[in-house]
Every structure is written in C-alpha cells, then in structure tokens.
C-alpha cells in the first residue's frame, strides 16, 4: 500500500516534470518562430503610448546629489572602438574630430569638440539604468541636443534623430541609435563630454555620448560621429532604429 503510494507520487512528479519540460520547449519554439515574437513585441507600442500619455513631455528624471554618485561607474558595451579612424582621432585628443549634423535640416553643420564646449551646457547628476538590471549614478556635463537642433533647424518632415557611432562589433557593423523629437528636445537630453568633472574617457564614449535620462542605457550611444535627421528608420542598419533594436530589443526603452 505504501509502495503503491510512493509509486503514484513518483508518477505524479514525473508527469509534472514532463509536462513542464514540454511547455518550456514550447516557449522556446515560440520564441524562435517567425510570428510569435511580433505578437509579444506589440506590447512595446502600448507601453510607449501609455507612458507618453501619462508622462508630461518635459517631466524630468530625478537628479541626485554629489554624495549619491557611484564610486565606480561601470563601463559596458564597447570600451575601446576597434576602428583605425577613431584611434587616429583619439591619439590627437579628438582635436580633429568633427560632429556632422545633416539629413532633413535647413542648415547642415559641423561642430568641433571645442565649439560644442562653447555652446550652452547643462550639468546633471542622474541615474543610468542598464537593460541588464543594474544602476549607477554619475555627474554628466554636455550640450543639450536641443541647442544643436535649434542651430541646424530640422525640416518639418524630420521625425527622428539618428546617432551614427564609431564603434564596430565583430562583424564590422557600427553602433547606431535613434530617438524621436519628444526625447530630442527634452532638457536632460545631452551630448555629454564630461563625466564626474573629468573629460569623458574613451571607455565611456569619448568624445561625446548621448544622455537620455528617461530610457535605458543602450539608447545612450557612445562615440558619436554623425547625427542625421530622418523621417523614418527603415533604411538605417537593420531598420529597427538601433544596433540592439536589430537584435530584438525594444526601440522604446522607457522600461
């Protein structure tokens, strides 16, 4: 009788395990299917619309005090671009680097690093949230992107700001990212050239990186070489608006 009970219990456990493994395999199969990730991805549009609906356009990310800063701000992603052109610029402390702003603008322009530093700046101590789950706090200084946009004057047809970067992956694809105008004109959206009162080091994206405080870290492109204003994202990279977006991450990284 007892043995029968144990057999039955073992049978139940084994059955539950078998069903569980089948369901798990099913989830893996769905993840690799053509159609299912698209359905899951539809939540991104809902999240973006709802967050934008309930968030005032100029709502500010929390700013912290000097004492709140991380002792070590982790480096992540590419930390030293494997790109000869970039390395030449770096050797000269980016004195020859020029940021091109072009695309759907009235007055395309180039800015040297010293020109950017002479533009109005903003300093903010903010929290950086990585998609992996960790957070770090640092003090950033840079020129608000809106200052640049006001100088180049976007055409009415422009909808996105695309950042073309110098850091390639193993296959040679350079990093890129894009944001829309809600974020581009946000007061905390900076082209940062300093972290914690130091010149932005290479590991953190020298000479400039994007700060986009209401979204996750992967949106904040480092090693920016060129800014392009476009009306759609189809023709750039894999067409999803960013390097990680082309690998399945959300374009709207507000959560």
């Amino acid at each position: 009788m007892i043995k029968k009970r144990i057999d039955r219990r073992r049978f139940m456990i084994r059955s539950a395990q078998a069903v569980g493994l089948m369901l798990l395999a099913g989830c893996d199969k769905l993840s690799r299917s053509e159609w299912f990730p698209g359905i899951l991805g539809s939540a991104e549009g809902l999240t973006r619309r709802v967050q934008r609906l309930i968030t005032p356009r100029k709502a500010m990310a929390r700013e912290y005090t000097e004492a709140d800063r991380s002792a070590v701000f982790p480096t992540n992603g590419n930390i030293d671009p494997n790109n000869p052109d970039y390395q030449v610029l770096a050797k000269n402390n980016f004195a020859d680097w020029k940021l091109t702003v072009s695309g759907l603008v009235e007055r395309p322009a180039e800015f040297s690093l010293s020109e950017l530093r002479r533009l109005p700046s903003r300093t903010q101590i903010t929290r950086h949230d990585c998609v992996e789950g960790w957070s770090a706090i640092a003090k950033w200084k840079g020129v608000p992107l809106s200052e640049l946009l006001n100088r180049v004057r976007p055409l009415p047809s422009a909808r996105y700001v695309v950042f073309h970067c110098a850091d390639p992956d193993e296959s040679g694809q350079n990093y890129y990212e894009s944001i829309d105008f809600d974020d581009a004109y946000h007061p905390q959206t900076l082209l940062a050239y300093a972290i914690n009162d130091q010149v932005l080091p290479i590991a953190h994206g020298a000479p400039i990186r994007l700060r986009l405080e209401r979204q996750l870290g992967y949106k904040m492109a480092k090693y920016i070489m060129r800014i392009e204003l476009v009306d759609n994202l189809v023709a750039i990279g894999g067409g999803n608006g960013g390097y990680w977006e082309d690998q399945g991450y959300e374009w709207y990284a507000g959560i």
């Binding site: 967050q51 309930i54 968030t55 005032p56 709502a59 500010m60 990310a61 929390r62 929290r127 949230d129 405080e213 209401r214 979204q215 996750l216 507000g254 959560i255």
Partner: peptide
C-alpha cells in the same frame, strides 16, 4: 524600475 515612469 522604468526610468520613463520614474520621471512621471
């Protein structure tokens, strides 16, 4: 955990 909602 959402930086967007933290701003709101």
């Amino acid at each position: 955990m959402s930086p967007g909602l933290d701003a709101a």
